[in-house]
């Protein structure tokens, strides 16, 4: 990281050039991402506020302990780490695509864009599996003195405190947990997943435009750079979603 060297005495604000040494489009992408950061920040902070106001909150290691094909094995954090690494790797391939664009290397831009798209789709697939597992995976809950089997939705939460000494089909029985848990989880990971989805769509458009030679005609690959900024932001947000929902 080396802040761009600027000759002493450069008059940035005297007109005729970009005072920030950036094109309009790239600068506005940065400001859009900053405002998006505030949107995600507000969501995550409201989640934190509700969590702080509750006497009991479910342990994420108990809620998110499944892995596709592993049956009922207790594997806390395993699947979400896979998702995290998928996003990190797709971020790396995006950096490489942007760099290939700087070098006007069309073949490499195409290759790395394709890998980035594959990474994004893999992440979305993982998220679809996780949501399905949470919604359809029923757990025994003691409601009004009766044991019911419910899944995790925006209106139901089976992850309350364990009811001591009560078992149901070999599974510990819980009390109903705070309802806000599902709402925040599906709302925030859903909003992030929507960003991943739109990022994949943007990347596909950029891939097609690269193949059609639009950027070669234009003389630069700055659009790849802007798509790259958006894609890295998606990875950046996941760092905090991962932190707030799974780690702490």
């Amino acid at each position: 990281m080396a802040t761009a060297a600027v000759p002493v005495g450069t008059k940035w604000w005297s007109g005729g050039k970009s005072p920030f040494n950036l094109s309009y489009g790239k600068m506005m992408m940065w400001y859009f991402l900053m405002s998006d950061a505030f949107t995600f920040g507000a969501f995550l902070i409201s989640y934190g506020t509700i969590r702080f106001s509750a006497n009991f909150w479910p342990d994420p290691n108990v809620v998110f302990n499944a892995f596709p094909g592993a049956g009922h094995a207790n594997l806390p954090l395993a699947f979400v780490s896979l998702m995290t690494f998928i996003l990190i790797i797709s971020s790396v391939t995006m950096v490489l695509a942007v760099h290939a664009g700087h070098n006007m290397d069309r073949k490499r831009v195409e290759t790395y864009m394709l890998w980035t798209i594959v990474g994004g789709l893999a992440f979305l697939g993982c998220q679809a599996w996780e949501w399905t597992h949470l919604i359809t995976g029923h757990h025994a809950v003691l409601i009004d003195g009766q044991i019911q089997e419910i899944g995790t939705t925006v209106t139901h939460n089976p992850w309350g405190a364990v009811v001591p000494g009560v078992m149901h089909n070999g599974e510990a029985v819980h009390q109903a947990g705070p309802v806000a848990f599902g709402g925040f989880f599906f709302g925030i990971t859903g909003f992030h997943g929507f960003h991943v989805f739109s990022g994949v769509v943007i990347n596909i458009i950029m891939y097609i435009k690269t193949r059609l030679g639009h950027f070669d005609q234009r003389g630069h690959y700055e659009m790849i750079e802007k798509a790259g900024l958006y894609w890295h932001f998606v990875d950046l947000v996941w760092v905090f979603v991962f932190l707030c929902f799974y780690l702490i």
Binding site: M1, A2, T3, A4, V6, W12, P19, F20, N21, L22, M27, W30, S91, V92, M94, V95, G228, L229, H232, F233, D235, L236, V239, F240, F242, L243, L247, I248
Partner: peptide, 27 residues
């Protein structure tokens, strides 16, 4: 863990998003 996540955020923005390469006023 929170501090480590902030470190990750720094590396992603500074290097992957090349914010560290922009001029100081913009940063």
């Amino acid at each position: 863990i929170t501090i480590l996540s902030l470190a990750k955020a720094f590396y992603i923005t500074a290097y992957f998003m090349h914010l560290g390469d922009e001029i100081r006023n913009f940063v």
